[in-house]
Design a protein around this nucleic acid. Structure first.
Lengths: 333, 333
DNA sequence: TTGAAAGCGCTAACAT
DNA sequence: ATGTTAGCGCTTTCAA
């Protein structure tokens, strides 16, 4: 492994000059630059990233903290982040928090010691305390689907309330008389916003009952339990808006097992637009978020922050799209 | 941020001594050690990982190169790797290769410059050339589902041939008269082995025809195309063994669309055991690999290699398990 | 058992 | 426009 010193010697210049052409800053004579590049070529020189990290405080590494990479929503997000980061020479560290604050804190610590250049939080437990830590440490970061309790920081999210309204309206328009909601965790912004959208549309209906909102914890299992409870207590429910696709899939399974026909007896709509919704029978209607775009946007924004570009923290709110599929397609009556 | 020097000063010893207690090597007086630990505590000292990497050639980072983190098989593998690595203080870098040799090569390069301590290859394009590079550079690595063309290196895989045989036998026992195979890529060891298992069981049957083996490229789309072609050319096929679950899911979709009843008209069996197989209707019978265990094993083995423990490279071959589910459960006739 | 000092490979003042 | 040099924070001989 040739070092910068070897190159300098070979090109008969100082290491500083080599460093300059390497980083494209400072003035360098064109002829000199040529010599240096030549030498680099000959020696097959490759700058050592670790040394650069130590000296320059820039490691070209970013981290992404998410609940669980196995969850398809997050793996797609991660994929987008990695693609984008890579295109800008950044390497990505993945951290699974399982939504546990303690794990998340540990990660932040480890990452700080590693001088990562920035962090994307797709995890949901991040408290104001951690945010404060980040700001003190001056580590750039971007939040996904989360409003900071305080201060301004960069955020990327999608129009959850709008999406939920679209979903519920669509359910109603396709003929449902009584629509229930399987809700995600109330601790999460997305959970609350989608619930809000649902309420906006049906809260004042004569048939509405708070019991129509059942928690499903954003998981397949949760969706199953919720659907079961729902059909038990409200046999006349003929439409369900699930706060995410995983829960919708769970609900679908349970309905099928109970012999309830989807969409004819109960129509079902999810949220997120993960690929999973295309393999079920019937295919699931869902409010698709631009998942890949969200990840890419978050990564771009983080890099912008890292490069110290002007403008300060920014907020991005992305549009969602209702994908009407079989699970809400009723036969004409 | 306190540095090792601060600690040394505070404890009135040299940095060398602090380094010693930090790494637990060399002789250190018990009393001295206590002083040092005290100082660390007081100053809230945390060693800088980057500096350690530069000085000690040990970055406590490993990388995992895989085709695509969005593929549930690989995301579960990745999860296992991260959990295991983290338990041993290693951080994980994820690299999506899209099975493109060029990307993979670039990654290896980047990772080398980063001094990563080791690499897990779950990607499939790795050629002997790259393996040689790795060996020259003396970077420890572990292969998943791939036999090296040459030299000995650590490998983790599962009993693909056995599994395929189990699958096909099960299909036969459950009443199928003519079983086809949707095959994964012939470039991949797993693809070839599963195909071999299939052939082992049916190759000599009177009804066998090479045309019963159709390529499905290990993807949902590929599975769709294959199933379509299959039913077209061999309408009497009543059993399909798909080389992985993704293709099985694709096949299931197509069969459903064609009005072919699964399992009664055509029984279907996949391979891998990803969670997806539990949400389809009918649920998919599949040969489950111990995915998490494979990832964990690979990570453990890599760490073993990194720590330079004796024994040299090792090979692990893990057992698979046939999960009999609805897609092969025929009504008695 | 402990300390001094020479790196690890690079960046960034500062000087020329 | 280019060179000198002092770090970045830690590990590891080599001495003592």
């Amino acid at each position: 492994m040739a070092t910068i010193r070897d190159v300098a010697k070979q090109a008969r210049v100082s290491v500083a000059t080599v460093s300059r052409v390497l980083n494209g800053n400072g003035y360098v004579n064109l002829a000199t630059e040529a010599k240096v590049r030549m030498a680099m070529e000959e020696l097959n020189y490759e700058p050592n990233t670790v040394a650069r990290g130590l000296a320059g405080k820039r490691t070209m590494m970013i981290a992404m903290i998410l609940p669980d990479i196995v969850n398809p929503f997050f793996s797609e997000l991660a994929r987008a982040v990695e693609d984008t980061a890579r295109a800008h020479q950044f390497t990505v560290i993945i951290c699974n928090s399982d939504d546990r604050g303690a794990k998340e804190k540990t990660y932040i610590d480890v990452l700080r010691k590693r001088y990562v250049d920035g962090i994307i939080f797709a995890s949901n437990t991040l408290g104001d305390e951690e945010i404060l830590t980040m700001e003190e440490q001056e580590i750039p970061f971007v939040l996904l689907d989360r409003t900071p309790g305080m201060g301004r920081c960069s955020v990327v999210r999608s129009r959850n309330v709008d999406g939920a309204r679209m979903a519920v309206n669509h359910l109603l328009q396709s003929g449902c008389r009584r629509v229930a909601h399987i809700a995600g965790s109330g601790d999460l912004l997305t959970g609350r916003e989608r619930r809000r959208g649902y309420l906006d549309v049906v809260g004042e209906k004569g048939w509405f009952d708070p019991g129509l909102i059942v928690p499903g914890h954003f998981s397949v299992e949760g969706g199953k339990g919720a659907a079961m409870a729902l059909m038990d207590h409200f046999p006349d429910v003929d439409g369900i808006f699930a706060g995410n696709d995983l829960m919708a899939v769970g609900a679908l399974k349970v309905l099928h097992a109970m012999g309830v026909k989807v969409p004819d007896e109960v129509s079902l709509c999810g949220f997120d637009g993960i690929a999973l919704t295309e393999v079920t029978v019937p295919e699931l209607t869902t409010v698709a978020q631009p998942i890949y775009e969200m990840g890419a946007t978050a990564a771009m924004e983080l890099i912008r922050l890292i490069e110290g570009e002007p403008g300060g923290p920014r907020e991005y709110e992305l549009d969602v799209l209702l994908l009407k599929r079989e699970s809400t397609r009723r036969r004409k009556r």
